[in-house]
Design a protein around this nucleic acid. Structure first.
Length: 213
DNA sequence: ATCAAGATTACCT
DNA sequence: GGTAATCTTGATA
């Protein structure tokens, strides 16, 4: 097994195993739930950045009017139609980026939106990216990654990262060898007008690193 | 060519 | 609670 060790800013050592592409070739709702608790890692020249995924949303273009891919392939959403295991990053509201993990088979148009995470390593670099300073108050720390636009700022995910693959060395998601147990809450998705009948937002029930209760 | 909406956030009362 | 900021995209003329 391809194990790698990650030392968190708190001094804890996590034993990680990178997720294979096959993890992503499944239903978006399944991947969305299973991504909870996994570790998102990015290597930058500012050091290693890592966080635990606490909140996700599934989008399935085959049946879901809220998905960008529902209207068919366009220049903006073409990454969403690739085979699972890529990053789909898009620009929204003229100021923010949102990052998704593409899921399922090629042509399916499904993805999982990364909505919130718990900071683990490289907090000072992420704080610089988002607040322009290294030292954070407790409140700023909790808010560092608790929204889809916020975590893109902190991890510096932009148009350049759209289409990047998640099984290489620069950006990837890993599972802990000893994963903690937790309960999952399911609700309707946030910020959409269509497709509100699907309860496809998932988060770790007891986590404080959530975009909204 | 013009326009409204958008998978959001920060800051205001 | 409300709304401004800011710009790409897709729809309508």
């Amino acid at each position: 097994m391809n194990e790698l060790k990650l030392k968190t800013d708190a001094g804890e050592v996590l034993r990680l195993v990178k997720l294979p592409q096959s993890f992503y070739i499944r239903e978006a709702t399944v991947v969305a739930k299973e991504l909870l608790g996994k570790i998102f890692v990015r290597k930058t020249n500012g050091g290693l950045l890592a966080a635990r995924i606490t909140e996700t949303e599934a989008y399935d273009g085959r049946i879901d009017p809220a998905a960008h891919s529902f209207v068919g392939k366009t220049k903006r959403n073409e990454t969403m139609f690739e085979k699972g295991g890529l990053l789909y990053v898009y620009f929204i509201y003229g100021m923010y980026y949102c990052s998704n993990v593409v899921t399922g088979e090629e042509g399916e148009g499904s993805a999982v939106l990364l909505r919130a995470m718990e900071p683990l390593a490289g907090v000072k670099q992420m704080a610089l990216n988002r607040y322009g300073k290294e030292d954070l108050t407790r409140k700023e720390f909790v808010s560092l990654l608790n929204g889809p636009g916020k975590l893109c700022m902190a991890f510096n995910l932009t148009k350049k990262e759209n289409g990047a693959d998640l099984y290489g060395d620069e950006i990837f998601i890993a599972t802990e060898k000893e994963e903690k147990k937790f309960e999952i809450t399911e609700t309707s998705r946030i910020g959409i007008k269509k497709g509100t009948e699907f309860d496809w937002r998932f988060y770790i029930k007891d986590s404080e690193f959530i975009s909204r209760k």
